[in-house]
Design a binder for these strands. Structure first.
Length: 836
RNA sequence: GCCGGGGUGGCGGAACUGGUAGACGCAGGGGACUUAAAAUCCCCUGGCCCUUGCGGCCGUGCGGGUUCGAUUCCCGCCCCCGGCACCA
């Protein structure tokens, strides 16, 4: 081989990858095409923060492998990409660098689009969208106006989560404990006027819909179920003694009602102050209210504390008068803000009763008849059997709950209710870089939605951001001062913008016709593509984006735009990319820049490593050595496929079963080697197809291809090589199976080795089941469950023959040494167990 | 506390509905090629035992059980990760 030809054959990832990316861009290779069954493959779109990171590489490689795989299998694949382009970092960057958020965002998009192209991802860029474009968010403003009409959007004053760092309100889903989900800065409660979306109206549907999401990870379903937090119980009315009126409590344990010895209220309860003025130590009660109201949830959790209001309430089930307390552990946000307290059967009430010497009355005993201790040291909270409960004594807890609820309902003293933990979605953000909320405030008319023909309300982009970090919108006279759409009097525009999670709640619908100018969606396009066949993204969105999108889908359905309940049929949540035991992050200084990786090894190596190192749902441990291993394998494939003197004339099609020795190109190779390699080739096709298509375990798919490559190499060395046609087919199969993972080298090697037809025009291989059938199989022979020998028998041997072969094996006879087998079990595949 | 997911070599990870545990890769060892090194190609590599023979014992978090046979199923624990949590 001359120097020049050696150079030609060397694996040069950069040259190969750039050339193919260019070709694909020109041929529009990634556009949805064909007559196949539609397959909508979607990865969560990125926030254009500046540069892509390894998490993106992993997420989008998984998506690209699936997109290319299913396209090769004849599906019509929609694989779009866009930008979740509104958000706070753009504002922070603007203040820091003096660049307008719009400009900063567009530049980032340009950079990142280029990076994604360089990875070889097969996106249909014709469908690209960015949520910060008026052509996009105008539809969202329309949705908002329609939601307003249906009372699905409303404005109220409420205690909300405020993050000083972000300078805005956050939704409940966006608070982790008492920290902001974005940067762990503290969140405190503030009373503010805010816009809310009535997600609670869909609580039951969102919950029951989870049952049909078979293609979702159990983990995410559970997280949403927990988040929605449905509980069934009864509301019970307690007449007040010192006050005209009654108090309603919520309980899931109506069976314990006879054991209630006090009632406790949240300090925020509307009656709290009122009751204090009727007989109690008003000053002490007011002091308690003030003090607890100021505390954070964490401080409140320090210990049970309360104060007697001086008032009493009547238990409707037995007429007993019980004291009414204010208690720090009762939450106004849940239930009715009032609780019937049963110290014997509720641990919180028990602790409270101990502290304030309130009687503990037992009404439930263990179902198995066991005795509870003479003096309780903790509440007995299990279900059991009632006693001291009048007519209900002797009933089980479950029966009693029903019966008591019925009794209360009959007397008009209670009713069965369902409670949710889920709260309405607060979407107002006191930020600039977001979609304007399309309403106007008029002194005469109040809140007036912007008329639909005046949409969009365009966000001004020529702005100077304020040094303090606040939104400049309230200062923009041109933006704020408008005529009331209803009465034409001077009015003021809303200056809050929408939560960016609103944009991401419907972007996947818009991809089906992003160019549509006079409507948000084309019904035919929606019908073709939705629901998303396979969605891929991080688990951190389990109760954020993934819950909001399910909600939004139902809202848009009820507004008449969609005929769809669930947006995502299947969901894959990929794990994080970890290095040195921690998630890659700038603050930890353990980031690996994808660009560097691509520079050094090429995109194919980056893609292969991220698919091979771990199954997709698990965290991926970054390993430089592992990356090198991936590169070595690719180069090994290159040498196998390209550094062959016959390159350009080699075949690729399956020569079929030629065990009779006919039609052999060399006429020498033993048919057994041929058959063995062909068998392994087809077995690899079967494994890889199953691993990618059914299991989405890409690591084992790659491993299977590696085994085939190893086998081809071994055959070359051993001198027992299969015939040329079988080897050619095996090598070509390696390239076909590898193409979704490493599309550039696969295409290049294919072109050099085979030429026509081009790899992209060759469909995914089908395995030939008959090729997997072997003449003989090796059977493991166990004696008492331990492998003692192996015998080879004909593949079609029946159980008796297999057992006989095993029992006549030399080693088995020696091992048995005359002992009589008590039992011989022939397993369904390749195993015999002899018991003595 | 409740819910979900896990615990397999030095490491990342394989093992389909119970059927030869450790595929594949990394790291390590040996060999071939080379003046030499790198690269490449081949072989070995769970632990402990008598080197003695294609050998024996132990081994999938721990303890039991079911089974001819258990990483896999059942019961009881321990530990790790994630979610929810004074939710009445």
């Amino acid at each position: 081989m001359t120097d020049s030809s050696r150079k030609d054959v060397a694996y040069d990832p950069k040259a190969i990858e750039l050339a193919w990316q260019d070709r694909w861009a020109h041929t529009g290779a990634a556009r949805a095409r064909g007559e196949g069954e539609p397959f909508y493959l979607l990865e969560m779109f990125p926030y254009p923060s500046g540069r892509i990171h390894m998490g993106h590489v992993r997420n989008y490689t998984i998506g690209d492998v699936l997109a290319r795989f299913h396209a090769a299998r004849g599906r019509k694949v929609l694989h779009p990409m866009g930008w979740d382009a509104f958000g706070l970092p753009a504002e922070q960057a603007a203040i820091k660098r003096g660049v307008p958020p719009a400009k900063w965002t567009r530049e980032n998009i340009d950079t990142m689009r280029e990076q994604l192209r360089r990875m070889g991802f097969s996106y249909d860029w014709d469908r690209e969208l960015a949520t910060c474009e008026p052509d996009y968010y105008r539809w969202e403003q329309l949705f908002f106006v329609r939601m307003l009409e249906r009372d699905l959007a409303y404005r109220k004053s409420a205690r909300v989560n405020w993050c000083d760092e972000c300078g805005t309100v956050l939704a409940n889903e966006q608070v982790d404990g008492d920290e902001c989900w974005r940067g762990h800065s503290p969140v405190r409660q503030r009373e503010l006027d805010q816009w809310f979306l009535r997600i609670t109206r869909y609580a039951d549907e969102l919950l029951s819909g989870l049952d049909g999401l078979d293609g979702w990870p159990e983990k995410v379903v559970t997280m949403q179920r927990n988040w929605i937090g449905r509980s069934t119980g009864v509301e019970v009315d307690f007449e007040l003694c010192e006050y005209e009126g009654s108090l309603t409590v919520f309980t899931t344990r109506a069976d314990t009602l006879f054991g209630s010895t006090f009632v406790s209220l949240a300090v925020e309860h509307p009656l709290a102050r009122e009751l204090a003025s009727r007989g109690g130590d008003e000053a002490a009660v007011l002091e308690f209210i003030e003090r607890i109201a100021r505390q954070t949830p964490e401080e409140r959790a320090q210990g049970k504390e309360g104060v007697f209001t001086g008032c009493h309430a009547v238990n409707p089930i037995n007429g007993s008068q019980v004291p009414v307390y204010l208690a720090n552990f009762v939450l106004m946000e849940y239930g009715t803000g009032a609780v019937m307290a049963v110290p014997a059967h509720d641990q919180r009430d028990f602790e409270f009763a101990e502290r304030y010497q309130i009687p503990v009355v037992r009404v439930i005993g263990p179902a198995d008849g066991a005795e509870l201790p003479e003096v309780l040291t903790e509440a007995f909270t299990d279900d059991g059997v009632l006693h001291d409960s009048d007519a209900f004594s002797g009933k089980t807890s479950a029966d009693a709950r029903e019966a008591i609820a019925k009794e209360l309902t009959r007397g008009g003293k209670g009713r069965q209710v369902v409670n949710y933990r889920l709260r309405d979605w607060g979407i107002s953000r006191q930020r600039y870089w977001g979609a304007p909320i399309p309403v106007v405030y008029c002194d005469a008319c109040g809140v007036v939605p912007v008329p639909e023909d005046e949409l969009p309300v365009v966000l001004p982009t020529e702005v100077t951001l304020l040094e303090g970090g606040g939104s400049p919108l309230p200062q923009l006279e041109d933006f704020v001062n408008v005529d009331c759409p209803r009465c034409s009097a001077p009015a003021r525009r809303e200056t809050d913008t929408m939560d960016t999670f609103v944009e991401s709640s419907w972007y996947f619908l818009r991809y089906t016709r992003p160019d549509l100018a006079d409507a948000p969606f084309d019904p035919a396009a929606l019908a073709e593509w939705l629901p998303v066949t396979q969605y891929i993204g991080g688990v951190e969105h389990a109760v954020l984006h993934l819950l909001y999108s399910r909600f939004f889908t139902r809202v848009l359905r009820d507004l008449g735009w969609l005929e769809l309940d669930e947006p995502f049929a299947r969901l894959l949540t990929q794990g994080m990319v970890i290095k040195d035991g921690a998630k890659m992050s700038k603050s930890k200084g353990n980031v690996v820049d994808p660009d560097e990786l691509v520079q050094r090894y090429g995109a194919d190596t980056a893609r292969l490593f991220s698919m091979f190192a771990a199954p997709p749902e698990k965290d991926l441990d970054w390993s430089e050595r592992g990356v090198e291993g991936a590169y070595r394998f690719i180069a090994r494939v290159w040498r196998l496929a390209v550094a062959d003197p016959r390159c350009g004339s080699a075949g690729w099609e399956d020569p079929g079963d030629r065990s009779d020795g006919s039609d052999r190109s060399d006429g020498q190779t033993p048919p057994a080697a041929d058959r063995a390699l062909r068998s392994m080739t087809h077995e690899t096709i079967a494994r890889v197809t199953h691993d990618i298509g059914d299991r989405m375990h890409f690591n084992t798919a790659v491993a299977a291809i590696m085994e085939l490559v190893n086998e081809i190499y071994r055959g070359r060395e051993s001198g027992e090589s299969a015939g040329e046609a079988a080897v050619d087919c095996a090598v070509a199969t390696v390239l076909r199976l590898l193409a979704p993972f490493v599309p550039h080298i696969a295409a290049e090697a294919w072109e050099r080795r085979i030429g026509e037809p081009a790899l992209e025009d060759v469909p995914w291989p089908d395995h030939d089941p008959s090729a997997l059938v072997k003449d003989s199989v090796e059977i493991a022979v166990q004696i008492n469950g331990k492998v003692r020998a192996r015998v080879t028998v004909a593949a079609d041997a029946d159980r008796e023959a297999v057992a006989a072969a095993a029992l006549s094996e030399e080693r088995v006879i020696a091992e048995l040494s005359g002992r009589e087998p008590r039992k011989t079990v022939v397993g369904p595949c390749r195993l015999v167990n002899i018991v003595v």
